[in-house]
Amino acid sequence: MLKNSSSHYGLVSVVLHWLVALTVFGLFGVGFWMVDLSYYSEWYRTAPYWHKSVGILLAVAMLLRVLWRFFSPPPTALASHKSWEKRTSAVVQFCLYLGIFMLVLSGYLISTEDGRPIAVFTWFEVPALGALFANQADIAGLVHEYVAYSLIALAVLHGLAALKHHFIDKDNTLKRMFGRKP
């Protein structure tokens, strides 16, 4: 089943969810590490190149995810979920989406201030819009940094909440995210 039903996630949502999760943590790790690479490190050029390429691909995946939500809405919350849990998880999930888009946008603004496009591996380039405001690279860099830390904190919270449902509430919240029928 590719599409979501009212009670379970379809393959598309499941795959996109875990792919994005893996990519976000991967990009965070690489980003955290690459900013302190020495000039003579063999990764000095490669790591940012991959970070940017994967970041753009993440943006594409996220756009697909948002579109997919309209085409195939996620299942309704489990009946056992309390209303504060539903509200909180909705806010956290919205912020996760927002955070990823803010990261992509701020990352784009850092690299494109001078009008250079962003190469996505050797496949294609994302054209630059140039400098849109003063101190663009610096401001976007700060936003990128703070949003990245906030996003990871939220993602950890999101994950802990899933584990709480699995181990403490012993419900199907986490299992559902692997595509199993409850």
């Binding site: 690299s111 494109t112 001078d114 250079r116 610096d138």
Partner: peptide, 8 residues
């Protein structure tokens, strides 16, 4: 230096 990332 004509390169936004380097200037940053």
């Amino acid at each position: 230096s004509n390169h936004a990332e380097r200037d940053k």
